[in-house]
Nucleic acid binder design. Structure first.
Lengths: 345, 345
DNA sequence: TCTTGTTCGGTAACCGGTGTCATAACCCTG
DNA sequence: CAGGGTTATGACACCGGTTACCGAACAAGA
């Protein structure tokens, strides 16, 4: 008597009701091919009637593998984490998988050990690694060792296609800055992201690419570094505007710093976009809410989250099409009101 | 031979190494009282040496209870979800618990069934319910039935203290609007939240409380309803400004709508705060990034998340102090630059 | 010395699934 | 109809813990 009335039905209950062994029920659950069609239908009917659902804990124990997708990150960009999360959850909805969120301390010395313990203990089906830790090759090696699927997200393809989801930051920044040049801007400042971040590097390179295209040259004087935070954007914006009065446009490596630059401009009494055009990157919630609404590069975070989840589910019974698709997702320029042609001098 | 070298140590390995039965090791893990101090120390030493960690899947199966905290919500407010999540994760860090995020479809007819299935299958240690579904008494009943701990978050205390974490929205709005009145504002508009939301109701009541305090009266003409989204804030702001030119201040029931009102004001060429003061609610990321930075009511989301996690962990070996504390968390007015005294007429 | 009680630790079954291997029933072939 | 190859199903151990229950060792009381 496994079912005491209050508890849920177990595989034993189903087996008894169907007059078969639990192994046969197990075969039905796992869609085994070697099964008589009548038996299958009979058992499926009973499963439907009783509303039986296999116990994930028992399965996890027997299979040494859990039906969880881990989201592992040390990313301080809340918007990004949330976007990825929403993308993953959208794919997981309706499957037997659940999402488990495991943040680790940025730059902690125990970071690798922490993630190792997480994977060893939870034995998730797979994990999604967000930048910047996704750039750490040690973690990919760790996953391979532990036999855990993984997907590394980044501003560039970091691994084999089935383990990668990436955006083309460099090309996107290139296009965004060219857009400024095409409008007539010749003195364009850059607020770069912090060193050590791949995304900051890629965006910096994209900026340089655009400058080297001409007609003007790359001017290291018009570059200030921030740490991706709002306050650093204000400071960098102020330095930029103080050092180079001829500046008619600023590209900031993320929206928060762009918002900071906007504040710096307003404090100096500049009109945006009349006196100064500003372009951000990420298209987070703040971009659309600023005044003027911020022209920015939209990073398809949601789609990337979805793609990551699909890649992890590839080969399972919950697999979805296009799972093996291209790891590269294109960022696009979202034109709002913070950019205009420079005033004729 | 349980340990094949690549795999992790199991309770059997520890038992063999210590020369005791696995039950004795289990007693050490579970801090059983009836244990010889020497035995305990010996086993603990071996556990430390081998780095043994009990397998959560096996424990979950035997205990019929998982070491997971579920975050269940149908909340479209990303900032809020993320804040709560961060609070919970902060408390969970270093414990054996992990966070599992389970969103459900807003207003879906299968919502209760979905949550029931989630709880029955995962058997989480406890779940945190976010508004607006937290306001549904059916879910609390469901949790009690299934023997799952729960905490309901809300704009008001919704349940017994150990199952509640709440903010005092009504009083906070009252104070914020009084602040406007004290500065001399007499014509204050309200952008209310959508009907059916407890938070919208509480904030509306707080607004009315402040108006009835005098010296002016509550004017239903100066109330527009939004749906908590940016665009609805623009629309409501425009209606308000068109209908009542004497308006010198607007209180919006959340920051997104306040940002919308700010846009509406700028479109009409109004100076904020010179011509119009604006106050928001939530203190999300956008509030500080707007120009001018938005005066708003800070809802202590992070602290509330922490409190919820602590309440769920109360009574476990990972329990933390103040777990049983007061369910009420005070919201406070954050004064920034979007509010000033009205110009003398 | 013989109970009696307490403390400590072991044995076996169990949680609810899965893998391996055996076996019965069936079909076809010669 | 014996022999051999499939196909469908079952028996049983196992995953790594926990609980129920039982027994040994030892101290104290009769």
């Amino acid at each position: 008597m496994d079912n005491d009335g209050s508890g849920k039905a177990t595989i034993n209950d189903i087996a008894r009701l169907a007059g078969v062994s639990k192994k046969t029920v197990s075969r039905v659950i796992n869609r085994s091919a070697l099964l008589n069609e009548d038996t299958r239908q009979n058992i499926e009917a009973i499963i439907r009637e009783t509303g039986y659902v296999p116990n994930p804990q028992a399965r996890a124990l027997a299979l040494r593998r859990n039906f969880l997708i881990g989201l592992v990150h040390d990313n301080p960009n809340a918007q990004m984490v949330l976007g990825v999360q929403q993308g993953i959850l959208g794919v997981l909805k309706g499957t037997e998988y659940e999402l488990i969120v495991h943040p680790v301390d940025r730059g902690s010395t125990t970071m690798v050990a922490d993630i190792r313990q997480f994977v060893e203990r939870q034995r998730p089906h797979g994990i999604v690694l967000l930048p910047p830790i996704s750039e750490n090759p040690e973690l990919a090696e760790l996953c391979r060792q532990l036999g855990c699927r993984y997907v590394r997200m980044g501003s560039d393809v970091l691994d084999a296609p089935e383990n990668s989801v990436a955006s083309n930051d460099r090309a996107a920044v290139h296009a965004a800055v060219r857009h400024l040049v095409d409008l007539g801007h010749r003195f364009i400042g850059l607020i770069a992201g912090p060193e050590g971040f791949r995304s900051a590097f890629e965006r910096f390179e994209g900026f340089k690419d655009a400058m080297y295209d001409g007609p003007m040259h790359f001017n290291a004087q018009a570059v200030e570094r921030g740490d991706y935070r709002f306050e650093s954007g204000i400071a960098a914006g102020e330095r930029l505007l103080a050092n180079e009065p001829r500046l008619t446009a600023i590209f900031a490596s993320n929206d928060e710093m762009a918002a900071g630059a906007l504040h710096a401009a307003k404090r100096r009494g500049l009109d945006v976009p009349g006196d100064l055009s500003i372009v951000g990157f990420d298209d987070t919630a703040i971009a659309a809410h600023l005044w003027p609404p911020l022209t920015t590069v939209r990073w398809p975070i949601l789609e990337m989250g979805r793609a990551a989840a699909r890649k992890l589910l590839a080969g399972t019974r919950d697999a979805q099409p296009e799972a093996a698709g291209d790891p590269l997702f294109l960022s696009t320029l979202i034109e709002r009101a913070s950019v205009a042609s420079p005033r004729v001098a």
